[in-house]
């Protein structure tokens, strides 16, 4: 399986993602934002970080960079595209997934482990994954998912919510919502479910010596589903 990680000026989780993808068997290539051609890929990842210093709105500048034309074409023709954290912010700015990510409700940069409940397993990202609840890491200032009421209805009707913030047991309540996101939404799909944007970082949970291995479950499952 081939993957590509796009590096924008200010990306800082691109190498972590590279390590994670390779650990679980992907042949990964790093792709510079100013390139126009996307290498042949089964998965394209927009990594976390602070592309363009978060100027104007997080992800807004990166969404207009040269490589994104190819990424958008790849996604609209059914290719698997995953945006993590700043990558999620870039995805919403391209319009590939609906909504926006606002400043966290309590104006704090949040950096901690959270639990997320998988809302939909009928897709390549989460199909056959054993757990319903995963422990991931979040680190963001603008992760407060927002969309209009009409968009929310459409998202729910099409089962586009991927994961919600919850507690260890999978209970989705406001008190487990770290950033004020509508309905505790932590990740969302496009209509076809080939594009996934999420705030949590699975690539930070691939080593028991660091913080945990729920990311390993995610990547192992993902590569098996892609085969």
């Amino acid at each position: 399986m081939k993957s590509s990680v796009i590096t924008f000026p200010g990306s800082n989780c691109d190498r972590d993602m590279d390590v994670a993808l390779k650990k679980f068997g992907f042949k990964n290539k790093m792709v510079w934002h100013d390139d126009t051609e996307l290498p042949k890929s089964d998965l394209v990842v927009l990594p976390g970080g602070f592309s363009y210093g978060d100027y104007l709105r997080c992800g807004s500048m990166a969404s207009k960079s040269k490589i994104m034309k190819s990424v958008i074409n790849f996604a609209t023709s059914g290719g698997m595209v995953m945006g993590i954290c700043n990558g999620f912010q870039i995805l919403v700015e391209t319009g590939l997934v609906p909504g926006v990510l606002l400043r966290n409700k309590y104006l704090e940069f949040i950096c901690k482990n959270v639990f997320v409940k998988i809302n939909n397993k009928h897709n390549t990202y989460f199909k056959d994954i054993e757990n319903d609840v995963l422990e991931f890491h979040i680190a963001h200032n603008e992760g407060n998912y927002f969309c209009t009421n009409d968009q929310l209805k459409e998202i729910e009707d099409n089962e586009q919510v991927a994961i919600n913030y919850c507690d260890k047991e999978g209970s989705i309540q406001e008190k487990f919502n770290p950033n004020g996101s509508i309905k505790n939404i932590a990740g969302i799909f496009n209509k076809k479910k080939n594009v996934l944007g999420m705030m949590p970082h699975p690539e930070r949970m691939i080593d028991p010596a660091l913080s945990g291995e729920d990311g390993s479950l995610f990547f192992n499952n993902l590569i098996n589903n892609l085969k």
Binding site: V100, F146, C147
Partner: peptide
């Protein structure tokens, strides 16, 4: 196209 995000 860029300066505003019309969702918000």
């Amino acid at each position: 196209k860029l300066l505003a995000n019309l969702v918000i």
